[in-house]
């Protein structure tokens, strides 16, 4: 009985008693949700265009951030460092296409998935071999003051606002690019049907390079945001794994799904941790997202926005 009351009643009472605090918790959650969304976005791009579930996306975030911060620490101007990292991620995309993807065309998805695990390990080792495995603080001059809203009752980090705005901008650019550019049209064609796209002369290999490069760019943005907050370190690639449950929630083929899924998971796990965590001994943030995903897999495997899959013989 006491447990039931602790579980069902007490947290709700707390929320009602201090709505400003709840709002703060939710906002903090949404902000980490933005990070999940950004990683998830990279997953969706690659999955849509090549049907590959890219486990390495999280490590790409780390790799991009490592390169960026490494260049900056060796005295390169942030803008130059940014451009250089974009070039590095593009070269990486080309290398992955040439060395791995091209040779695994028509393999089953599980093999492709496992090969991206291999890529993830390689990149992680490679990045840290060059730039070292230490935590590197990252400061590109994003304001780190706090602002108060709602008559000064709710406190927000400016950096969080900045991250949210950047993410929104990025998604808008991508959405417009998808809709209005020739490359975007080709991408959508490939996403719909590889064979058909190939047969009307869309160069599949180039498309893959482009998507992986764009995913690398998204990874860089995510990496900078994350690095500003936590420092650039190995654990980023583990935290980025939370984008996987986000995708289960949002559906693997839906860009808005990735965004909304990320926000839901981010806010959900914060609220769960703050209000229910102590009941279970704390640190439930570690698995909350995954268990939510597990439940989705059991009862609604296509996610909130994904399309239902029909098998054919």
């Amino acid at each position: 009985m006491e447990f039931l009351s602790d579980f069902f009643v007490a947290p709700i009472m707390e929320m009602v008693d201090a709505p400003e605090f709840l709002a703060e918790v939710i906002i903090a959650g949404l902000m980490s949700g933005v990070m999940y969304s950004l990683v998830g976005l990279g997953f969706v791009l690659i999955f849509k265009a090549s049907g590959i579930f890219n486990f390495a996306q999280g490590v790409m975030v780390l790799f991009a951030a490592l390169n960026f911060v490494g260049l900056m620490d060796s005295g390169v101007h942030p803008i130059i460092a940014f451009i250089a990292t974009v070039v590095i991620m593009t070269v990486l995309a080309m290398a992955i296409e040439r060395v791995v993807l091209r040779r695994l065309v028509n393999q089953n998805q599980l093999i492709l998935f496992m090969s991206t695990i291999g890529i993830a390990f390689f990149l992680e080792g490679f990045g840290e071999l060059i730039w070292g495995g230490n935590v590197r603080p990252l400061d590109i001059g994003i304001p780190d003051d706090v602002v108060f809203i709602a008559n000064g009752t709710i406190l927000i980090q400016e950096a969080d606002l900045f991250a949210g705005a950047t993410a929104a901008l990025l998604v808008t650019i991508l959405a417009l690019g998808f809709r209005y550019t020739a490359v975007g049209r080709a991408l959508r064609a490939v996403a719909d049907d590889h064979q058909a796209a190939l047969s009307i002369g869309i160069p599949l290999n180039n498309i893959w390079v482009i998507v992986w490069a764009v995913a690398g760019f998204v990874a860089l943005v995510a990496g900078i945001m994350w690095g500003t907050k936590l420092g650039v370190q190995f654990s980023i690639s583990i935290v980025a794994l939370k984008a996987l449950p986000v995708l289960i929630l949002g559906g693997f083929t839906s860009i808005p799904g990735a965004i909304i899924g990320g926000l839901i998971i981010g806010a959900g796990e914060k609220v769960a941790e703050v209000y229910w965590g102590s009941l279970f001994g704390g640190a439930i943030e570690e698995w909350f997202a995954y268990i939510v995903a597990l439940l989705f897999l059991l009862f609604r495997p296509q996610g909130l926005f994904g399309e239902k899959i029909i098998d054919r013989v």
């Binding site: 496992m114 090969s115 490679f126």
Partner: peptide
């Protein structure tokens, strides 16, 4: 550095064997 190398080699081997 050996640990980083180990990551790289294992990662490359995974890709190699799968291909």
């Amino acid at each position: 550095i050996i640990t980083h190398l180990e990551f790289m080699i294992f990662g490359a081997m995974i890709v190699f064997f799968l291909i």
